[in-house]
Computed example of a mutant assay.
Amino acid sequence: MATTRKRILPSGATSWQADYRDNAGKRRSKQFAKKSEADAFLLTVRGEVRAGMHVAERDSPTFDMAATDWLEKLERDGLERATTERYRATYQTHVKPELGVRKLASITPGQLQVFVDGKAGAMSLSSLKKVRDCLRQVFSYAVKRGKAGMNPATDIDLPQPRRGQKEPPEMPTKAEIKRIVEATPAKWTPYIRTAVLTGLRASELRGLTWADVDLGRGVISVTHRMDRFGADGPPKSDAGRRDIPLSAGTVDMLKTWQETCPKGEANLVFPAPEGGALSHQNFLRRVFWPTMLKAGVAIDTGKVDDDGKPVLEPKYTFHALRHAAAALFIEQGFRPERVKTLMGHSSIQITFDVYGYLFPKEDDDRAAMAQIEDNLFV
């Protein structure tokens, strides 16, 4: 029997005690400042007890205990290391400081919504989604193991961007691409040119082997990728397995590169100088960023160095070359479904979400319809 009763504390203050029995028949109680809070608590508890899912706050682990167990499980299950580390960084930076010491049973949906709302102004939407995913997955893990009675993170709302608010991805212009390629050291030119002309992800370029490159047919087959820790694995999704056609010029470039590139056991197309797996951070720091600065593809930070010279920073990320490749595909007239395939997107919606603004607009369609009419009747 679940009841709410009024209590007068030794201090003279009034509290409301919610009494109930858990799934094992053990008497439990919890005090609240307001009767409405105690009644709402009992309403939730009754449902959890009926479903056999209730966990009393006294027996509940802290969020940090559950999150630690969850992260360890991700590692045991062999989840890609980069993904696990991303979850870990999100938890340690954005969740643990405020929620780590809280008991899972004490956290309500409303509290989590307020928690996420409080971060909305200081974080990008993509970072906020990572926080929400972390909350959801920790609670889901705990519920499945009887450590929490419910998942209060299920219905967290995120701020919706206003129409037209989304910024297009940053990417170099064709003139900037030419300058970057011209400034690239010769031994790295095949890597940069292949990135621009194929749209391959950095992890796909790192994992590319000569067995994946058919220079006779002029095709690169994407069958696996290598994360930034050097671990080889499958593409991000089934759509990531794809064939990328190569131009005659790219085939000739890769034939020449195959003769001179560093050799290693993995037979990588773009290895590190000693033949092993390429470190993405080393490549950025030693090659890509200096190359952009040399090419003048940079932004002025507004600061000056000790000699009074402006401090410049590289203008783009390496991923921007992938965006540039997609833009070139679309400019060349490739249809959305073909761009989706070449980019390895898991759905056409992703293609439109990122690159929809680049596809021909209504005026272009009208011109095409007029051309059809002229061809038929004029």
Rank of each mutant, 00 (worst) to 15 (best):
A2Y: 01
K6G: 01
R7D: 02
R7Y: 05
I8V: 15
S11Y: 00
G12L: 07
A13H: 00
Q17F: 05
D19I: 13
A24D: 13
K34N: 06
K35Q: 08
S36H: 06
D39G: 05
L43H: 12
A51P: 01
G52P: 04
D59H: 10
D59M: 05
W70C: 02
L71Y: 14
T83Y: 15
G100L: 14
I107F: 11
L112G: 11
Q113F: 06
V116Q: 12
G121W: 04
L125Y: 13
R132Q: 14
D133H: 12
C134Q: 11
Q137K: 15
K144T: 03
K144F: 02
G146Y: 10
P152Q: 11
A153R: 10
L158C: 05
R162M: 05
Q165M: 05
M171I: 01
R179T: 00
A183D: 02
P190E: 01
A195E: 03
R201Q: 13
A202I: 11
S203N: 12
S203F: 06
W210Q: 05
A211C: 04
A211T: 09
D214M: 04
L215N: 07
R217Y: 01
V219G: 08
S221T: 15
V222R: 12
M226F: 07
M226T: 15
F229I: 00
A231R: 12
P235F: 08
A239K: 08
A239P: 01
R242C: 01
R242F: 00
R242W: 07
I244Y: 10
P245N: 11
T250D: 03
V251H: 06
Q258Y: 09
K263T: 03
E265T: 03
N267T: 01
N267P: 02
F270I: 00
P271K: 04
E274H: 14
L278C: 14
H280C: 00
L284M: 13
R285Q: 11
R286F: 06
M292W: 10
K294Q: 07
A295G: 01
G296R: 09
G296C: 05
T301Y: 06
K303R: 14
V304C: 11
D305S: 08
P310K: 12
P314K: 08
K315L: 10
T317M: 12
A320H: 09
L321M: 13
A327L: 02
R335K: 12
P336A: 15
P336N: 09
T341M: 13
L342G: 08
H345G: 13
Q349R: 14
Y355S: 08
G356Q: 10
G356K: 10
F359Q: 09
F359N: 09
D363A: 15
A368V: 12
E373S: 10
E373G: 15
D374F: 11
L376H: 08
V378M: 07
